[in-house]
Design a protein around this nucleic acid. Structure first.
Lengths: 263, 263
DNA sequence: CGGCCATTTGATAGTCATCAACTACCGTGG
DNA sequence: CCACGGTAGTTGATGACTATCAAATGGCCG
């Protein structure tokens, strides 16, 4: 019993309009407008949807986890983000007729299936619309942050960023935040996301562990020194603190780490 | 007389609903619904808008060029794209209340100013809506492609990609396509976009030139061997053709280069 | 014409990819 | 239950690529 999927619905974008949420299994008490989305089970490695296929449905993730992979026209593949319960796979701001990425389950997972029509109808309601746009905005921000990370930060910084982000998401979902997380994705997936090789990822984790920042054993990871990781992320690692690549005044410490995951 | 701004309007998203377009200077002949957007002149280095400021207006670029810069929460700055006449600065798919990037003119430029309300109204009309969504989709695709490039391609590939993209955009605007382009952006801007240093960019351009792929003199550049560049982009450079990083069957040659620019 | 900035070019070192074993884990089947 | 095979992950050695440091050159604008 690794991850329980309990808080998935409470964090789901559709929570307020969904009949399944929270109430356990009991059918929607009233309001005929509430969603009764179909639920699907996908096994580790299965596709939730594939890039280029018609985008007729979005998939709120109920339990498990997934990665999103983008394949460029020339055939380069790269992981663009990880999704956790509560995220909505396939949700995009520009109503593309086809999925722009492929979503792959990282473990046996459960998703709801909401048709784009239903989504569109929901979007008509201002409160829902606001929330949805907010989610999409956050995703865009994440992607941009990832771009900057990959484009101008060094390997240890990227790694620290990811760990802090994952921990943050973990905490946002379950209340507890003892810094324990389970990496559902392989080293290779992490490497792809961060623009590194799997060896480098492995080495970084080992190094972080040897310095007491974290503890890792396979895919079980525990953050021991969040502040230390934040320092590395902020590049206060090697050179005490002076250089500061090309940041300017203000904004010294970032409050929360807001990064990579996409869906 | 470096760049003329003539075809800007004909490629503008708002072309079909704008009263200024094409007709030269004459006021809108009929239809009161046609836009009469205010025109602004910005000088090289000026901001069109800044990240974080309220997004009340979008700015179709009439003449000149601009770069979009994103600053991450920690203060890292990175160029995320270049804009040419016809592009719409500040157009985003998720109606963010604030601009998510900063737009800086690369040369003295002219933009139109269209309020978001006007934009919203225009979006109500299906044909315009379709077109706008299409533009935003392309931008998203570009950003993703850039991420992949920065995340997993080597410097020469990235450089070749950019050149091909710029040439493609050039051709898409003016009919002619003798491969001549003027780089309005500095080496440093290019470096930022591609996740490199300005020295590396300079060296790459020199190397490309010495091999007869291009001709460069300051910011004047001419592509001599597009096919050669495409080969480099596709990584058929060093190793004849075998390795192929991690692409799989199919999709060997990408038709057009569709990349980096964002707005 | 002089100063300043953009760019080029060279020398050098660091980071990270690559190649190569080696070890740990997981599920299968004997 | 334990041996086995395969995949995931670790670790080491090496070198390529590119960042970094340092001048030198070329243009452009007062």
């Amino acid at each position: 019993m690794p991850d329980h999927g309990a808080p998935a619905c409470s964090l789901c974008l559709f929570h307020a309009v969904c009949g399944v949420a929270e109430t356990g299994g009991t059918p929607a008490p009233a309001s005929s407008m509430r969603l009764q989305p179909e639920r699907l089970t996908v096994r580790a490695g299965d596709f939730v949807f594939r890039q280029g296929r018609p985008a007729l449905t979005v998939y709120p993730l109920r339990a498990g986890s997934a990665k999103q992979v983008y394949e460029s026209p020339l055939g380069w593949r790269q992981v663009t983000g990880f999704a956790l319960p509560g995220d909505v796979l396939g949700l995009e701001p520009h109503e593309a007729p086809q999925h722009s990425t492929t979503a792959v389950a990282l473990q046996d997972s459960v998703v709801c299936a909401v048709s784009v029509e239903t989504l569109r109808e929901s979007m008509a309601a201002p409160p829902f619309r606001i929330a949805a746009l907010e989610v999409m905005r956050r995703n865009a921000e994440r992607e941009r942050t990832l771009l900057v990370a990959v484009g101008s930060m060094k390997a240890p910084q990227r790694m620290a960023m990811l760990l802090l982000d994952l921990a943050g998401e973990q905490a946002r979902r379950h209340g507890r935040q003892d810094g324990t997380l389970t990496l559902a994705m392989s080293r290779s997936d992490i490497a792809s996301l961060l623009g590194l090789t799997l060896e480098t990822v492995s080495r970084l984790l080992s190094r972080f562990a040897s310095v007491g920042l974290i503890a890792v054993r396979q895919r079980r990871l525990r953050i021991i020194d969040p502040t230390g990781l934040a320092s590395i992320y902020a590049d206060l690692g090697a050179d005490a603190q002076r250089p500061a690549r090309e940041r300017d005044p203000g904004a010294e410490f970032a409050p929360g780490v807001t990064m990579c995951r996409v869906a």
